[in-house]
Amino acid sequence: MEEKKTMCAHRLSLDNRQEGTVTGVRDIHSFNESEILLETEAGRLSVKGELLHVRRLNLEKGEADIEGKINSLTYLSKKTENKEESLLKRMFR
């Protein structure tokens, strides 16, 4: 029997820059208190802030709840594979 890969719609909800819900999550690449890097249906999403925490993660449903002081949400292009690449190297491509 053929296995179907269900695609969940990507949605981002943020309340008072303190709590957020993300749907369409495929994976979490990394997380710490200052950054969470998610793989979503819409591409990689970088969440930056302070005291960040992944409160709930359900990859079967593609959902994640995050909390903390959220300062920025950035979708990274598919070309941005190495996030540790130096700023100077990125400026002079």
Rank of each mutant, 00 (worst) to 15 (best):
M1C: 07
K5I: 15
K5V: 14
T6Q: 14
M7A: 14
M7K: 15
C8G: 06
A9Q: 13
H10S: 10
L14R: 02
L14T: 06
N16V: 08
Q18I: 07
Q18G: 06
E19R: 13
G20I: 01
G20N: 03
T21F: 04
V22E: 02
V22A: 03
G24Q: 00
R26Q: 10
R26H: 12
D27W: 10
D27R: 08
I28G: 05
I28S: 02
I28K: 00
I28E: 03
S30Y: 08
F31H: 13
F31Q: 07
F31L: 11
N32G: 09
S34L: 10
E35S: 11
L37T: 11
L38P: 01
E39H: 13
E39W: 10
E41N: 12
A42F: 10
A42S: 15
R44V: 04
S46E: 10
S46W: 04
S46F: 05
S46Q: 15
V47Y: 00
K48M: 11
G49A: 03
L51M: 09
L51G: 08
L51W: 03
L51F: 10
L52V: 01
L52M: 04
V54I: 10
R55D: 14
R55G: 02
R56F: 13
L57C: 10
N58L: 04
N58T: 06
L59Y: 05
L59A: 02
E60M: 08
E60Q: 11
E60D: 13
K61S: 05
G62N: 00
G62K: 01
G62H: 04
G62W: 01
E63R: 11
A64D: 02
I66H: 01
E67T: 09
E67M: 13
E67S: 13
G68Q: 00
G68Y: 02
I70A: 02
N71T: 07
S72Q: 09
L76H: 09
S77N: 11
S77P: 06
K78H: 14
K79P: 00
T80W: 09
T80V: 14
E81W: 07
N82S: 12
E84I: 05
E84Q: 13
E85P: 00
E85R: 15
L87Q: 12
L88H: 08
K89V: 09
R90L: 14
R93I: 07
